[in-house]
Simulated assay, not measured.
Amino acid sequence: MNRLIVGVALGALALSACNKSKNSDTTTVERNVLIDNGAAAATTASAADQAFVEAAAASNMVEIESSKLALTKATLPSIRTYAQMMIDDHGKASTDLAAAAAGAGATVPTALPADQQTKLDALGKLSGAAFDKQYLADQKAGHVATLAKLKDYGASAPAGGLKDFANATAPVVQKHLDTLEKIK
């Protein structure tokens, strides 16, 4: 009989715990939704912030996609090594940008602008030394332009996650340019 009472008591505790856990989860989810909705409603990106996010996202996307091509098409091992660094570093930058953009209420695009997609498509049609030469030229031009945008935005933007992103990313882009100079 004592075993029966203990068994019933344990069963009741288990059901109570399940119900409490379910209610806690629901409350947490509801609270998170309210916080997320409130934050989204309260924060809207300025035109300058949105333009910066779009430019930075496009830069990351083109670097990643062109470097994926370089992993298979480049003739020099140093270019393939550089390409992997681009994929890794710009992948991280994309993640960091998304977090900073969300905090600023900016939208991160998921597709390349048409002009950059056209250049990427043209690069994909090249092979051998012609691919190597164009990839390196595109990398240099892209990184010079991106570095200028990061420095300008970092110097003029109001304090916040996007400014922090720009200032933290600029030295990485400079490292990419320095590495490019060493590829022969």
Rank of each mutant, 00 (worst) to 15 (best):
L10V: 07
A141P: 06
E181A: 15
N2Y: 10
A148K: 04
D132F: 07
G91V: 07
A48M: 13
E63C: 11
A47N: 07
N23C: 12
A58C: 12
V33I: 09
A157Y: 09
A9H: 11
A157N: 13
A168E: 03
S156Q: 12
N32R: 15
K119G: 09
A48S: 13
K92A: 10
A114E: 05
Q134L: 01
Q84N: 09
I79W: 00
D49H: 09
G11F: 05
R31D: 15
A114Q: 02
C18L: 13
A166F: 04
L10A: 15
N23K: 14
T28D: 15
T95I: 07
K151N: 04
A157K: 09
A58W: 01
L71W: 01
V33T: 06
A17T: 12
S46Q: 15
K92N: 08
A56I: 02
V8D: 00
N37R: 01
A129H: 08
G11Q: 09
G11V: 04
T169S: 14
A55P: 08
S59F: 07
K22E: 06
A39H: 13
K68Q: 05
Q84R: 02
T110H: 11
E181T: 11
L76F: 01
A129I: 08
K125G: 11
K175P: 06
T118E: 15
K119V: 00
L147K: 01
V172P: 05
V29C: 10
A155W: 02
D96C: 13
R3L: 03
E63M: 11
K22G: 13
Q174K: 03
A104Y: 03
Q50C: 09
S21C: 07
G38H: 12
A137Q: 08
A130N: 14
Q174M: 01
T43D: 01
K140Y: 06
A170H: 05
T43I: 13
L76H: 06
I35G: 15
V108S: 14
K163W: 00
A56S: 10
G142S: 06
A40M: 08
T107N: 12
A98N: 10
T43Y: 02
G161H: 06
L147R: 00
S127R: 10
A170Q: 15
V33G: 05
E54S: 13
V108N: 15
N60F: 04
